[in-house]
Every structure is written in C-alpha cells, then in structure tokens.
C-alpha cells in the first residue's frame, strides 16, 4: 500500500533502547488516555476490565524500565513483556506479555536493530501469541489488528520504505484491522460466549493493539531529529 513511500533516509531513527523506551512512554500514555474507552468497549462484550488492566500493566512496566533500564531494544521489550504477564491479571497480560517477550528475545542482545529485524521480531512475537491463544485471523481478537500491521510493515519495507514510512503503514493497517472486527463474530475469550450478540462491537484487544502500533509509529516519528 505504500510502494511509493520515501526510501529509507536520514529521517529514520535507529531502533535502539532509546527508541524502545520512547515507544513505552507513548504506549503508556495512550493506554492511560484511552483506558476508559477500552473498558467501555470491553463492557459491551467482555468483563469490563481491559482498560484498567492494561493501565496497571503499562504503569508497572514503565516503573520497572525506569528503575533498571535495559541497554538494548530487545531487553526493554522483554522486560515490558514480563511485567505485563506479572501485573495485568487478565488475559491481555499473558497475551501482550508473550508478544513483547517473544519480540524482545528475537532481537537478542543487539544494541540496535534494522527495521527489517524489528519487523521480524514483531512477527515472531505475534506467532507466539497466536500459539498461546489458539486464535486465528477473523476470530475478533487482537490478531485482527496485529497481523495486518506486521504484514503492512513487511510489505512497505520490501518496497524500499524506511522505518517511519513502514510503521506509518502498519499503523493504518492496525486501525483498519481493529475497525474490521466490528462485524465479526467472537470465537475466543469471554466474548465468544455471547455468540451473535458479539457482532456489532469493536474488539477491545484489537483496539488496544492499534494503540500500541500507533505508539511504535509515533516513537519513530519523534526520534527523527
């Protein structure tokens, strides 16, 4: 979708620990800002705790990274993942935790990652989430925002785009993917008990996923100085 995006250039920041921390700060702020909306979406088809759970998780993750900042982007992502598993208390904890910990492990100890390596790490983390939750595309879950986002990022990079443009494409795909969950029938989690009544509501997990992808894009844009 972004074949004509500007090629990688001086405006693209390096994916390093500072980038990962900018993402965490933006993600935490977005979760804080949107917590009520996420909980409202979750009250329609879930157990009305998604916003508060994620806020608690990201607050704990930010505090942990602040206290003992890892020196690599993989270290930051893995630490955030562990904190989410340990502090959220709802299904989004082990799911996002597995995603971020998996992505962090994939990046390993490298001090910087190329955009392609970041994309590969996100895909590896995402495959871990799909395994853990057993969901597939179209089940009205976070995967419906995240798989299109990673696909768009990969396609964009393949077409010669740099980090900012590729993450811009990922952000649009994630937003569209989240919106596309509205007519879907939930097949996983508490929402699946509702059957047909889950139709017509946007999935809270896909919505928070789009926020986290947006934060990845904003962290890249904000680091172009």
């Amino acid at each position: 979708m972004n074949a004509s995006a500007p090629a990688s250039g001086a405006t693209d920041p390096v994916v390093d620990a500072a980038y990962a921390r900018r993402w965490l700060a933006l993600a935490t702020a977005a979760v804080e800002r949107e917590a009520d909306r996420l909980t409202e979406l979750d009250s329609a088809i879930g157990d009305a705790d998604h916003g508060t759970n994620l806020r608690r998780g990201f607050t704990a993750a930010s505090a942990a990274v602040e206290k003992d900042p890892p020196g690599t982007p993989g270290g930051v992502l893995a630490l955030v993942g562990r904190q989410l598993i340990g502090s959220v208390g709802g299904a989004s904890g082990p799911l996002y935790g597995t995603l971020l910990r998996g992505a962090g492990k994939h990046l390993g100890d490298a001090e910087t990652a190329s955009p392609e390596e970041l994309c590969g790490a996100l895909r590896a983390g995402l495959e871990g989430v799909a395994r853990l939750g057993g969901a597939a595309a179209g089940d009205k879950t976070m995967l419906d925002a995240l798989f299109p986002a990673v696909d768009a990022m990969a396609f964009s990079l393949d077409s010669g785009a740099g980090l900012v443009a590729a993450l811009g494409a990922a952000r649009i795909a994630a937003d569209e993917g989240a919106a596309a969950t509205v007519p879907m029938l939930a097949r996983k989690g508490r929402a699946s008990y509702l059957g047909e009544r889950s139709v017509g509501h946007q999935d809270p997990g896909a919505t928070s996923s789009a926020l986290l992808v947006t934060a990845l894009a904003e962290a890249a844009e904000g680091g172009t100085a």
Partner: peptide
Amino acid sequence: DLGSAVLTVKALLED
C-alpha cells in the same frame, strides 16, 4: 478455570 488463568499458566510454562 478460564481465559487468563489458562493463558498465564501456559505463558509461565513456555518461559
């Protein structure tokens, strides 16, 4: 029992 209980145990086992 449900959702996050199952997923948390699985995530802990995987790690």
